[in-house]
């Protein structure tokens, strides 16, 4: 077709501007219906999430920080040779000197060394609690969501009850019984006990959503069993919000641990921990604020890194904001 305007009817019978119009056939190339772009790179959900992530400056910054923090936690002796438990009262509150860049605290312990070694405590408590919360809360939520019925009702009521106890209050009640135990595991256990409800709720709703998608019905019609569906389809599809919640709450557990130390129900004096050091330094704020400053800074940077990572992961995995 060469002419842009072909009219089957005389133009006089039409309104001006409403004549028959046919675009030249060569103006728009007619493509094959529904063709596959074979050149585009293949991307699964995780790959596309990764592509979003690696372009996110938040992820890059927090990723580098977290790698560094993990390295410090795993190999503190690379950064200091001073024993954090070696305290000499004659060094009490001494200013920084060679080999002791942050100076000494009231007990005469090396602050730099304690900050370095404290990383391990905070990070292991944060990571362990997150793992246990994810396993326990995830299991409860997945079972409730997948099986439904009375199982769901029962588990949801139990979740409601634990949800009714404010996290810090519950932890205080339990931990005050064990002030003489000086182990990170009492904190991990306590925080798991009072912290699993959110994970359970998120997992339950994610599983409920994934369960009702048609691909489960399709698999059942192929002969797949409910258990196979749960592990092969439903759980993998519920992972994204769980990961987001886990990353975001990791930082919160580290803060909570320090808060519990501060309230005197956390770790004892034998464990090197930022929370304990901050708690001990509180009386020095007017005279020697730097003693308080260094462990606080370390704590804040660690928590910030994990929260930024959580934000980045959330943007990549959950663009619709299901986990708010």
């Amino acid at each position: 077709m060469t002419s842009a305007q072909t009219s089957a009817q005389p133009a006089s019978q039409l309104y001006p501007g409403q004549e028959r119009f046919v675009a030249p056939a060569n103006e728009v190339k007619l493509e094959a219906v529904d063709s596959v772009d074979e050149d585009a790179p293949a991307l699964g959900m995780w790959q596309s999430a990764w592509r979003v992530l690696r372009k996110n400056p938040l992820f890059i910054v927090s990723g580098i920080l977290i790698i560094f923090i993990l390295f410090v936690a795993l190999f503190p002796s690379v950064f200091t040779h001073v024993d954090p438990r070696y305290c000499n009262l004659s060094n009490s509150l001494r200013n920084p000197s060679a080999g002791h860049p942050f100076g000494f605290d009231q007990q005469g312990c090396d602050i730099y060394s304690r900050v370095i070694w404290g990383t391990r405590t905070s990070v292991s408590i944060g990571i362990s609690t997150t793992i246990f919360v994810t396993l326990f809360g995830g299991l409860i939520g997945a079972v409730a969501g997948f099986f439904g019925g009375w199982v769901d009702t029962l588990l949801s009521r139990i979740t409601d009850i634990f949800y009714g106890i404010p996290f810090l209050l519950g932890a205080i009640v339990l931990l005050q019984m064990f002030t003489d135990v000086d182990s990170i595991w009492k904190l991990v256990a306590t925080m798991t006990l009072f912290g699993w409800t959110e994970m359970a709720r998120i997992t339950r709703s994610a599983v409920l959503e994934a369960k009702n998608l048609e691909f489960n019905t399709a698999s059942t019609a192929l002969g797949s069993s409910p258990a196979r569906n749960l592990f092969r389809h439903v759980l993998p599809n519920s992972l994204a919000p769980m990961i987001v919640i886990a990353t975001l709450s990791l930082g919160q557990y580290i803060v909570s641990e320090a808060s519990l130390d501060f309230l005197g129900v956390g770790l004892g004096g034998n464990t090197v921990s930022w929370g304990v050091d901050i708690s001990n330094a509180q009386t020095l704020i007017r005279t020697n604020p730097m003693v308080l400053f260094y462990p606080s800074l370390a704590l804040a940077i660690t928590v910030l890194a994990f929260i930024m990572m959580g934000d980045a992961v959330k943007d990549a995995l959950d663009p619709t904001g299901r986990t708010a």
Partner: peptide, 11 residues
Amino acid sequence: SLLLISVPTFV
């Protein structure tokens, strides 16, 4: 808001 969340209340 990020800073406020990361720095513990007591600090």
